[in-house]
Amino acid sequence: MEKANELVEEAARLAEQAREVQDAAAALLSKTWNEEQALRQRALALESDLKRLRSSVDSAAKKNPAVLDPKISDKIEEELYRARCLVSDGDVASLLPSKAHGRFLKMFLGPVNVRATRKEVQLKVKEEYNSYRDRTAFLFLLFPCTLLLLRSYIWDGCFPALPVQLYQAWLLFLYTSLALRENILRVNGSDIRPWWIFHHYCAMLMALVSLTWEIKGQPDCANKQKGVQLFLVWAMMQGVAMLLQNRYQRQRLYTRIALGKSMESA
């Protein structure tokens, strides 16, 4: 009997502790939410002030260029750039309204929030995007090279239909995954231009249409498959361009990260 009473008391004590922890957690979350909302309002006001000052400086420079001394103008530009870097590339960016998800993301992911609240997570998403582009650029270059070599030395100058269609299916997957990742990056504050994402939509359509190509064989295979051969040669050149572009974008990302850190420590 005493053992049972002890168990009841222990259960009651744990239940009371659970209620206390729940109340403390609720109070903490409420306090954090209130502080976050206040900070969010400050961030919005700061962004508005930056836009207003930017507009005022541009307007003054257009109306009367002699009003602003070159040294003063350079100082203003430096301070505005510093503030803009902190707002757009720092932790403040997580407090600003996110860009709309768009129909493409909603079509594939549904009403899921893909906005990262922490800056290091956003940078990790960008880094993963660049790494993915590096990997796929090598494949983009390797696949057509392999197909062309096999055509010359193994397939007697004639492409079988299946390998070419597998490559085209991979292209469809590649462009779809790139478009998804780029839409997620835009939601997280990346400055990827809309036309760049739109051109991947067009590439998706191109890859889908190419899957319907009829890969004709013998006789006169070389002439019938001339278009396929030219497409693969173009893909090789595109792969080289992607590798160079990826290198440039990665260096630009590292530069922006370094600038953001230097601005924070200044």
Rank of each mutant, 00 (worst) to 15 (best):
R84A: 08
R82P: 00
C85W: 03
V112D: 01
A100G: 11
P111A: 08
N34C: 06
E47S: 15
L80F: 00
A100M: 08
V92Y: 03
K119S: 06
L95T: 05
T117D: 09
E47M: 08
A66R: 11
N34V: 11
K106V: 02
T32L: 15
D91A: 14
R52I: 05
D74H: 08
A116W: 00
V92W: 01
L39N: 12
S59L: 06
R82S: 13
F104K: 02
K119L: 10
A100I: 06
R42W: 06
L95Q: 05
F108R: 01
F108H: 09
A38W: 01
K119R: 14
T117L: 11
D89A: 13
R42A: 09
R40T: 15
F104V: 03
L53F: 10
Q37Y: 03
N113W: 02
V112T: 08
R82W: 04
L39R: 14
K51F: 00
S56F: 00
R118V: 12
E47I: 00
P97V: 14
R103M: 10
K119I: 07
S48C: 03
F108T: 00
D91R: 13
H101R: 15
R40N: 08
S56G: 02
L109A: 04
R118G: 04
L86H: 01
R118T: 11
S55N: 09
V92H: 06
E78W: 00
K75I: 08
R42V: 15
T32N: 14
L46T: 13
A116Y: 02
A116E: 14
E36Y: 12
S88D: 11
P70W: 04
D89I: 06
S94E: 12
P65S: 00
L86M: 09
N113C: 10
D58R: 09
S98E: 13
R40A: 14
P97S: 12
A61K: 15
Q37H: 05
V67K: 05
D91H: 07
A38L: 11
K119N: 12
K62F: 06
L50D: 02
P65W: 01
P65A: 03
A66N: 02
E35A: 13
L80E: 04
K63Y: 07
L44E: 14
S48E: 12
D89L: 15
S59C: 04
K106G: 06
L44S: 13
F108P: 03
P65L: 03
D69F: 00
S73D: 10
A60I: 02
F108A: 01
V57H: 00
P65V: 02
L95H: 03
D74N: 12
E79W: 05
M107D: 04
T32M: 13
K106N: 10
M107G: 07
G90T: 08
E77N: 12
A116V: 02
Q37N: 09
L50F: 05
L109K: 03
D58G: 14
H101T: 12
E79L: 15
V114L: 02
N34Q: 11
E35F: 00
M107T: 15
R118H: 07
R42D: 05
R40H: 00
R52A: 13
R54N: 12
S88Q: 10
A60D: 09
V112L: 13
V87N: 08
E77L: 14
E77I: 08
A93K: 11
A93E: 11
S56E: 13
S55A: 09
N113Y: 04
L105G: 01
L44V: 14
P65N: 03
P97N: 13
V87R: 07
D69S: 11
L96I: 10
S59M: 06
